[in-house]
């Protein structure tokens, strides 16, 4: 019962801009792309001249209909695919894309439950898709983002997230270095921080957490200790342990 309903499509690099010293936003035009829900991901396949192929899965930063999709890729020091996508890929170059994939770590505009998003580092990518879907749908459901970063320079999409018109408020947290004048010192997110900066259990939010494994484990455990029920916590993890 081989099933390969989702096939590979060709994507041509349409736009690119740096997000941080190690990350880049890359937007592809993909003909007959069916559109995607906020939070879905896509497989990217690269082929070397000798036929060797490498496939990696990336969250999609964009959302909705249309033939463009935006990815936001962080360069892994020892990576095989991410350095090529961040440093080498040029406008007009093509890659193969398969997707959209995943039907669980997604937010759809018809959802009515309040939403708390919690991002660790580049884990913000599927979550910014959710804030974008929230804004473009004109949703009146409360949505807010807590974004944990090593340093202020590591922020993806800071301008967009900080815009007064943003429909989802972003709270920033820094683990290694803080901006000057910042009231809290740098440090890992604690249960106290989460209690202060996220929607309380009484609001029964649906919480989406995305980040490295250790971050997701720590944050989800703390939320449960604060009284959130596990069924209202969705997670997406990356990296080994």
């Amino acid at each position: 019962m081989t099933s390969r309903a989702i096939g590979w499509r060709t994507g041509s690099l349409e736009r690119a801009h740096p997000l941080t010293a190690s990350a880049r936003s890359i937007t592809f035009t993909v003909s007959s792309w069916p559109g995607n829900d906020a939070g879905q991901h896509v497989d990217v396949r690269l082929t070397a001249p000798d036929g060797y192929q490498a496939v990696r899965s990336y969250s999609i930063a964009s959302t909705g209909a249309g033939e463009e999709i935006e990815l936001a890729i962080d360069r892994l020091p020892d990576g095989e695919v991410s350095p090529f996508l961040v440093d080498d890929l040029e406008l007009g170059d093509t890659v193969e894309l398969r997707g959209p994939l995943g039907g669980w770590f997604v937010w759809r505009p018809e959802q009515t439950q309040p939403v708390q998003l919690i991002a660790g580092g580049s884990g913000v990518v599927p979550l910014i898709a959710m804030t974008r879907a929230h804004a473009s749908a004109g949703s009146s459901v409360p949505m807010q983002l807590l974004y944990s970063l090593r340093t202020p320079d590591d922020a993806f999409f800071r301008d967009e997230l900080s815009q007064p018109s943003a429909t989802a408020r972003t709270t920033w947290h820094y683990t290694r270095a803080v901006p000057s004048g910042w009231s809290r010192s740098a440090g890992r997110l604690t249960a106290e921080d989460l209690k202060r900066e996220t929607l309380p259990p009484e609001h029964v939010p649906l919480t989406y957490i995305c980040g490295r494994t250790g971050f997701v484990e720590t944050v989800s455990r703390a939320l449960i200790s604060l009284g959130h029920v596990p069924d209202n916590i969705r997670t997406e993890r990356f990296g080994g342990t």
């Binding site: 770590f105 939320l223 596990p230 916590i233 969705r234 997670t235 993890r237 990356f238 080994g240 342990t241």
Partner: peptide, 12 residues
Amino acid sequence: TESFPVLSSGPT
């Protein structure tokens, strides 16, 4: 991969 990635849909 030499590491052991974790994928789960919710909290442990």
